[in-house]
Design a protein around this nucleic acid. Structure first.
Lengths: 195, 195, 195, 195
DNA sequence: CATGAATGAGACTTCATTCAT
DNA sequence: AATGAATGAAGTCTCATTCAT
């Protein structure tokens, strides 16, 4: 007898879970992980304190889910922007950067949480950025200029991207979108052989 | 409520204050600001809980002092490494980077706190890195390649430096010192006109 | 830092709040404001420490509520005892005094707190007694004997009433109820013209 | 062999002890017993924290000594003002009251401590006022009007005197000295047979 | 006598989490 | 599912008091 799929876990993310996630995104972006209580999140979502624990094991899990969802969206966005045949060539750099900057613009709250300068998001954000660093390193493999370690380069570029984006997203009037993209593209192109 | 003329600042940094700072550096590096209690710090330094408050108003003040001291040392180190006549020219890049990497190597705990990926050091570390970004932007002023915004560049390079160093310092076997320096130097040179 | 719409006041005084107030009355009467901790109060009421803060901001607020409630009851009691048409005439003195003494007899704990010799109830009790003094001064206005300042008289009579009652309530065997009332009445009648 | 009087206890109150008492008087008057730390007192007197304990067992002892000294001075003052042959007669009332008001005027700090509305001076001030109540009751003995209990009367008059004086001393512009004395005298004369 | 750094008990308060309804 | 009162561990900070110098 097949286990009723309905018996597995809350079938649908349902509106409650979604509202809690939304509240979490808003409040974490505003005040950081440690500045927000589970009470605050539940209240912001319009629920009582206990409801939080019906949907998440604890605060950290909420945070992890937010980060993972964010990363998933970002991954898709970046994948769309960089067709497989361009990967590993210099052609991907500008679309990749534009996708990243575009994502940041449209998801300021998420970016504040995950790329935050003061991302105390436990191990979560480390993983996010580490993954990105790995992706970048992978793409440059074999094209690194002499003396350039591709792993170091990956981390360097990620640190650069994360910081510029976090800085810019805090106040987008700090620079034009074009200047941000252009500057990031130029720096990323360095350290690699022109194709 | 304080009237006591005796309530002044402790005259001399004394060994107690120094031991508390040292304990703070060690524990913050290991567990982050939120993972450490004032009690822990006092105990680590070999004192009772109350002693902490004889020297620091609260945990945040200790943290601020650590960050400021660190920044001060780093500033000196960088100043020594980059003679004024080289500033604003490409000649400063390698010595600057070597000084930074050297400092990180010798002060792993401090770097973990101030450059930490999870630097929740309040406003403190933001200021540290912002200052560095400003310094860098200043040095590049006028030499930025076309399309490169020197302010964005400053933040980009700082993000890069901070992240690579934080990553490397966690486990120096991840890359040779030379590879780190070389990679960072190459990237920094990009975005500017060769001199 | 509070955002939660749920952070409103507890809708209804509920039994918990009431039990905490009762515990507060008992313990303050026994040991004074400074001799009691919020922990004590919660424990006396049969709750854990944190529960106190679900209902009162701090010890001072509990105390203020107790004092205000007490004053409110006393006000009602005195108002019932002194019909408006008797106010400002000598006819109110004895019923007023009997009501006061009766209230003290029935609310020994409250009286110990609010009229206490050692009423360190912050500004609270000062206000209680000041209000009473003002009321008395008002009632005597125009009837003061020559050389008698009605404001001074108000404070004098309040001081007298508060002290005698606090003294008597500590051990009612110290004097008969009648002797207390009679003595207080006689003194209050002095300083005013017989009507 | 007579015990050297020098061996008894600290021969002289010495300037240190005196300065601590003085500091205690000042600070207690300003902030109340609980608003002052032993540190504050020592500092106000110009000494380090530990010195306090060379002269007083604890804060309470300092307080007790202040109260006792005050009471002693007051006793002398009242004794001077009321010649023995006048005691127990109505002739003592005005000089007694004038002495009390005069003392209050000249020793505002002490009066604030000992007669304070919020005298949380432990058992100390209770004793002071109780003693005064006893003295008054004693003086009225045998002259009480019918229906007046002399013990109750004693407490009533003390409560009255203490409160009026505490109130007046806080801001002497609240009433003229004469009005205060006159009102108090008149009230005290009530409840007793005219002599 | 004086010092003042150190102590450590204890009060206050917050908040993640549970659970009976 | 939702509620929200209750819990209690954990952390912050103060201050009376001691003691080696």
């Amino acid at each position: 007898m097949a286990v009723s799929p309905a018996a597995e876990r809350p079938r649908k993310p349902g509106p409650t879970r979604e509202r809690l996630l939304e509240a979490g995104r808003k409040l974490f972006a505003e005040r950081g992980l440690h500045g927000v209580t589970t009470h605050d999140i539940a209240a912001q979502a319009g629920f009582a304190a206990g409801t939080f624990y019906l949907h998440f094991r604890d605060k950290e899990e909420l945070c992890r889910v937010i980060a993972e969802d964010t990363m998933e969206s970002l991954r898709e966005r970046l994948a769309e922007a960089t067709p497989p045949e361009h990967r590993g060539t210099g052609k991907a750099v500008r679309p990749f950067t534009e996708a990243l900057v575009g994502f940041a613009e449209e998801n300021r709250d998420l970016v504040r949480i995950v790329f935050s300068r003061s991302a105390e998001t436990l191990a979560v954000e480390a993983n996010v950025l580490d993954e990105l660093a790995g992706t970048i390193a992978e793409n440059r493999r074999g094209r690194a200029a002499e003396g350039v370690d591709p792993v170091v380069l990956g981390h360097a570029l990620v640190g650069m991207l994360a910081r510029v984006i976090a800085w810019w997203v805090e106040d987008p009037r700090r620079a034009t979108r074009e200047a941000v993209v252009e500057t990031l593209v130029r720096i990323q192109r360095s350290g690699t052989h022109p194709e």
